[in-house]
């Protein structure tokens, strides 16, 4: 009996998928770029009003949220590094911490917005309508930009939770032999499961011409020595998304909280 090993590697276009996510990130930059453009034009026209209105925002809450997002960026990067080291447990812990930070950010945002709304400052409120024009613009931009950013954080929470589940079950490799696509390579043979000493643990029926398709599914966790970036490209791409959310906040923070 001769055995023939066939690599359980699916071809995945790793670079292509990464390029795809970068293209998407660029559309995100353009989306927020439009709002930053509005901000800068209105700010140049109403510098004093922006100055006053920014004084209403809580710098401490803004700083805490900045630190939370920076920490989440660290844990995100560490989770990907952990998969490279074959440390699944650490990878999962780091993804969980990232999700926790994202939730913490949203809780802060909830209290921050809640306090503003409690004071009668919200889009279209009678109190806000009596403010100078520039301050109305400032708060309009504040609610729109931090709001759209907050939606991105919520999407990030959903995305990272999905990644947590994927990494927990991951990676599942599937190898298919279909008639006309590699099935002839195994015809006349049998599928078998061998232990590490080469003893047959399980042996299937002989593969003859009546068989049209064979699917082999395996579940494995890569170790450091046999790591393939393709196995974790979705986690890596989610990480890229999460980092861009952080970058957007890096610009939002000084422009709204620090210009008092």
């Amino acid at each position: 009996m001769s055995t023939q090993s066939i690599a359980l590697a699916h071809h995945k276009d790793y670079r292509g998928s990464k390029f795809g996510i970068w293209l998407f990130l660029i559309t995100e930059v353009i989306l927020f770029g439009g709002m930053f453009l509005l901000y800068s034009v209105y700010r140049s026209e109403h510098a004093q009003d922006f100055h006053h209105a920014a004084g209403e925002l809580n710098t401490l809450v803004g700083t805490i949220n900045t630190l939370i997002l920076l920490l989440s960026s660290l844990t995100m990067a560490l989770s990907i590094a952990a998969t490279h080291h074959g440390n699944r447990k650490l990878a999962l812990w780091m993804i969980a911490l990232t999700i926790l930070c994202a939730c913490g950010f949203m809780v802060n945002k909830y209290f921050e917005w809640g306090a503003k709304i409690h004071h009668g400052i919200y889009p279209g409120s009678p109190k806000l309508a009596a403010f100078p024009k520039g301050e109305i613009l400032f708060f309009g931009l504040y609610f729109t930009m931090t709001g759209v950013h907050g939606i991105h954080v919520l999407v990030g929470i959903v995305l990272l939770t999905t990644m947590f589940i994927r990494v927990m079950n991951q990676p599942n490799a599937k190898l298919s032999f279909v008639a006309g696509h590699g099935l002839q390579r195994v015809e006349g043979g049998r599928l078998a499961v061998l232990d590490k000493d080469g003893n047959t643990v399980w042996r299937g029926e002989e593969i003859d011409s009546t068989i049209e398709r064979i699917d082999v599914k395996t579940k494995y966790w890569p170790v450091k020595e046999r790591f393939r970036v393709e196995d974790f490209n979705l986690l890596e791409n989610s990480g890229l998304y999460w980092h861009i959310v952080d970058i957007i906040w890096i610009f939002l923070f000084p422009l709204f909280y620090l210009i008092t």
């Binding site: 990067a77 990480g239 890229l240 980092h243 861009i244 952080d246 970058i247 890096i250 610009f251 000084p254």
Partner: peptide
Amino acid sequence: IAMIKATIVLFLFM
């Protein structure tokens, strides 16, 4: 400073 921070995130974390 924001641009420096963004560059660091882009080049190292990303």
